[in-house]
């Protein structure tokens, strides 16, 4: 392995992180939005969201990627590999995030909502000041867990022509006839990325000054 190979592996890692982050930035809030629609039992919309979640939970990322990459142009929507990749990852992670947020919403203590109403808080206000801060706390571990799952699924976007870490490692292995070193390095890179996510979770979970006041 040359230094050029090393650079292409690192570039692949940057692609993996960038595309996954893009999907997370889309998927986490969108998942929350969908979860609220189900939680508030909006007729029809709730059914559509539930079907979407159930379908996507069962669909492999590879199949979803191929579907988006080949079928969208067939209906007249031209997408490049990057758009297709972000769409694939975002559609996938939104469904799983929706399930996580929904579980959080279902477990949310009803008496808090009643007291908020008794104090005359509007629903958006209640949501922003009462629900979201607590929901974010309880859902964070599951959300980060889903992010690491997304990272581990992200090599699927190789099927739409993206060169991520895994694809870069395969290319180097094919050129040098020594696949083991790039694969091991790629493994270390994934471990490092996942480690950063888990550390970020610890950091977000750290006790804040607000908690001290509350105690």
């Amino acid at each position: 392995m040359t230094s050029a190979d090393l650079i292409s592996l690192l570039q692949g890692a940057a692609v993996t992180v960038a595309l996954s982050l893009a999907a997370i930035v889309i998927g986490v809030p969108l998942g929350l939005g969908f979860a609220i629609l189900v939680w508030r039992r909006i007729p029809l919309v709730q059914l559509i969201v539930k079907t979407y979640v159930s379908l996507i939970r069962a669909t492999p990322l590879v199949t979803l990627g191929l579907l988006i990459y080949f079928a969208l142009p067939a209906v007249g929507l031209q997408t490049g590999p990057v758009t297709a990749a972000i769409l694939t990852l975002a559609i996938n992670t939104t469904a799983f995030n929706c399930e996580i947020w929904r579980a959080g919403l279902m477990d949310f203590p009803k008496d808090q909502l009643d007291s908020a109403q008794a104090f005359g808080m509007s629903w958006p206000h209640t949501f922003r000041r009462i629900m979201l801060p607590q929901l974010a706390r309880t859902c964070l571990p599951a959300l980060v867990n889903e992010m690491t799952l997304l990272l581990k699924g992200s090599p699927a976007i190789a099927v739409v022509g993206i060169v991520d870490v895994t694809r870069a490692a395969v290319r180097i292995g094919a050129n040098t006839y020594e696949p083991l070193p790039p694969f091991l390095l790629a493994t270390a890179l994934y471990a490092a990325i996942v480690f950063v996510f888990v550390r970020a979770q610890r950091w977000l979970e750290r006790p804040s000054k607000l908690d001290e006041v509350r105690v």
Partner: peptide, 18 residues
Amino acid sequence: CIPFLLLAYLVYYALPSL
């Protein structure tokens, strides 16, 4: 820690070199 595809590649491409 590792993606499944990476392991599949490892088994498919790297084991033959061993």
